[in-house]
């Protein structure tokens, strides 16, 4: 028996959960994102002027990769945990000698792995198509990881709060998707008129997407340090919240 075995088993379980259905979990989001690039970039992109000296198609690539990573991290974590609550398999995990932080990390790991896979494959395919090397791999990875952590944790909180499958879909459709779309995936915040630019500043996703764009292309609208600090802070804050909720047994222990 090894001390780390239970935690490693949890990680393996969450990896198994989404990779065994890779045709449904990994392949479609990559195809969707590449279709976005083809449609918005190649067919409409020529009619849009350059942004930060870059063609429109190149400008939207980092945002689309970030969007894929965020949404898949959220979907994976929320679905995995809610399904475990629904089929009550979570009770088996709670009855086993597993710590709250290990359970949260494992659910989160599934989301991070799926989000990163989608984000990185999207980036790799797009940049190969556009013959553009990434500007700074370190920052690219930093922002993709913090995004997947933040959205994965958001998915965990959502799955704990949800009482129906509808609740899960509502959060994704009416909160997360609009925030991502209004977070500068398809435009530069510099192009917005004054009041809208100020309002956009309250959207935390703007900083994550802007940071990713810096990592991939070397251009950004906002302070890099502010974006990095906010992304890291929000991710850590959400992770701490998830661990506390698990420790308290929120909607898990009666």
């Amino acid at each position: 028996m090894g001390n780390g075995t239970p935690f490693v088993t949890l990680l393996r379980q969450e990896w198994f959960r989404f990779t065994r259905l890779w045709k449904q979990t990994i392949f479609p989001p990559i195809v969707t994102t590449i279709l976005f690039i083809l449609i918005f970039g190649f067919s409409l992109g020529d009619r849009i002027r350059e942004i930060h000296g870059l063609s429109y198609i190149l400008f939207i690539v980092p945002g689309l990769a970030a969007m894929g990573a965020m949404m898949n991290a959220h979907t994976n974590c929320s679905f995995a945990l809610y399904m475990s609550r629904f089929d009550q398999s979570i009770d088996n995990m709670l009855a086993a000698p597993l710590r709250s932080i290990e359970l949260v990390t494992a659910f989160l790991w599934g989301g991070i792995a799926r989000g990163m896979l989608v984000g990185l494959v999207t980036l790799a395919v797009s940049l190969l198509l556009l013959k553009q090397p990434p500007y700074h791999l370190g920052w690219t990875l930093f922002f993709l990881i913090t995004q997947t952590v933040f959205f994965g944790c958001w998915g965990i909180v959502g799955a704990l709060r949800a009482k129906t499958w509808d609740n899960l879909a509502t959060a994704q459709n009416f909160i997360i998707t609009p925030l991502i779309y209004l977070g500068g995936v398809f435009y530069s915040v510099d192009l917005l008129p004054g009041i809208w630019r100020t309002i956009s500043g309250f959207n935390p996703l703007l900083y994550m997407i802007d940071g990713t764009r810096y990592g991939v292309l070397g251009v950004h609208d906002l302070s890099l340090l502010t974006s990095a600090g906010l992304s890291a802070g929000m991710s850590l804050g959400m992770f701490a919240l998830c661990v506390i909720l698990f420790q308290k047994g929120y909607r898990l222990v009666r």
């Binding site: 028996m1 090894g2 001390n3 075995t5 239970p6 490693v8 088993t9 949890l10 393996r12 379980q13 198994f16 959960r17 259905l21 399904m83 475990s84 629904f86 089929d87 009550q88 398999s89 009770d91 088996n92 995990m93 086993a96 000698p97 597993l98």
Partner: peptide, 22 residues
């Protein structure tokens, strides 16, 4: 209360791992 779509062999193997078996 087992994972709905997991093969039962995996369910069993993961259970062993949760309790520290390699």
């Amino acid at each position: 209360n087992v994972h709905t779509y997991f093969p039962i062999q995996k369910i069993m193997e993961f259970q062993g791992g949760f309790y520290g078996f390699d």
